[in-house]
Amino acid sequence: MIYTLCMALFFIGLYGICCKKNLIKIVLGFIIMDYAVNLFIILIGYRKNGIAPILDKTMDVKKFALSSVDPMPQAMVLTAIVIGLAVTALLVALCVRIYERYGTFDITKIRKLRG
């Protein structure tokens, strides 16, 4: 059920990219897809009634290993989130440049203006 909703979120992002005319809306769809993928990877690594993968002085390592959630998806997503921000900045820079050149965010008008 949770996986299905997560896929629905990805689907909404894809719909935004495919069917929207406004460039900013397309960027928003990209961000939604980014979030959905990150969330999906974290959901895979979850363990029921798990604890955060951070050791404490009082914890026993064996018991900790049996009850902690998966640290590896978290490590992957941690880097992916920061990259996502940089890519968003790149996309927004492209949008700014396009707006400056054509004076509009409408992609169909941009196509009509130059071949």
Binding site: Y3, P71, M72
Partner: peptide, 18 residues
Amino acid sequence: FGTGLSKVAGHYLNRGLN
């Protein structure tokens, strides 16, 4: 949901501190 833990995770969790 809540059951799939990758095999390498056990290694990391057991030996990460040492």
